[in-house]
Computed example of a mutant assay.
Amino acid sequence: MDHLRYAGLPFERQRDILVEIVRGEPIVHDVLRAARDFGLPQWRIVAGVIYNTVWNVLTGRPSGHGVKDIDLFYFDDADLSWEAEDHVIKRGHDAFAGTALPVEIRNQARVHLWFPEKFGEDYAPLKDCDESIARFSSKTHAVGIRLEADGTIDICAPFGLDDIFSFMVVPNRVLYNEPGYNEKVRRALQCWPELTVEPW
């Protein structure tokens, strides 16, 4: 199987292929529908379940191979308390009870409050959910999708999609996160040895 068959194509073509892939994979499309019904502000399904699903489809691996959970981001700066986010997380237990994998819900408006303690580096407050995607430790991982009310799929990919379709893992050095990047690389290579990795 030619897993690199979509590498190097224009962004618009790769976007269409990504949409086709996620529509055909219940593991992704079911959670998109559930997230749309859940109705969080500025929500997106992000990162692993998206690019991992692409790699699985293009290498003929089973649906869900290597995917631990599904990350659901949203942005609500009206209440930055942990209690408000925790309330959303608890409501999500019922809303996503029928999905194939656990759904991890996180309010991106709160990241600057806990990031320095966890990672030892300052983190400027975000203006919106999409800005957080541009700060991921890998440009390859920086992708988010949302199912709109009209059924279209909106894609946020600040660094494009070619790294995903080229099976390249490329660091994003906007923040220092070499340990996190290296750990993601180590795990990814165990699941998809076809990957080429750019060192931090």
Rank of each mutant, 00 (worst) to 15 (best):
D86H: 14
A95R: 08
W82Y: 13
A35R: 05
Y176L: 02
L147R: 06
D150P: 07
S137R: 02
I164V: 15
V31I: 04
K139P: 00
H93D: 11
G60Y: 08
W43T: 07
G92P: 12
I153S: 01
G98D: 15
P193L: 11
F73Q: 06
F136Y: 14
D163I: 04
A97F: 01
L4Y: 12
I153L: 03
V88W: 14
D130G: 07
R61W: 03
E83R: 14
N56F: 13
Y181C: 00
K118L: 12
D71S: 03
G180H: 04
C129S: 15
V67E: 13
R106W: 06
G98E: 15
N56A: 12
A34T: 08
D79S: 06
D37Q: 12
G180F: 07
A134C: 03
W114T: 10
V31N: 03
G39E: 08
H65E: 11
A100F: 10
D130V: 13
D94V: 11
I164D: 10
E198M: 02
G120L: 07
A97Q: 14
A188S: 13
V170F: 01
W192I: 03
K68H: 13
V103E: 12
F167D: 15
E148T: 15
D122F: 01
W43S: 14
S138A: 09
R146N: 10
H3D: 04
S132G: 13
H87Q: 10
T152F: 07
V111G: 00
G160Y: 00
G180L: 09
V170H: 03
H65R: 15
N56C: 15
S132Q: 10
Q42L: 04
F38W: 10
E121Q: 14
F38K: 13
L40F: 12
I155A: 04
A47M: 09
D30P: 01
G98P: 04
I70M: 08
R186M: 13
V111Y: 07
E104W: 07
L113M: 10
G98V: 05
V57T: 13
A34V: 09
P179C: 09
L195E: 06
D30W: 00
A34P: 02
F11D: 05
F115G: 00
Q190A: 14
L32Y: 15
V185F: 05
G144A: 12
R61Y: 14
Y74A: 02
V31T: 11
H3R: 07
V67I: 15
K139V: 01
G98W: 06
G64I: 02
I145N: 00
R91P: 01
A78W: 08
K68C: 09
G180N: 06
N56L: 09
M168W: 05
D79G: 05
D37H: 05
R36F: 15
E83W: 05
R44Q: 09
G66F: 00
F11I: 00
N107S: 04
P10W: 02
L40W: 06
K68R: 11
Y123G: 13
G120K: 03
R33H: 09
V170T: 12
E12R: 00
D94E: 13
P199F: 07
A100M: 05
K68S: 03
I27N: 04
V28N: 09
W55V: 09
A109S: 08
L126C: 00
H65C: 11
D30A: 05
E12F: 02
I27S: 08
R23P: 03
Q14L: 00
E194G: 06
V57Y: 11
D130F: 06
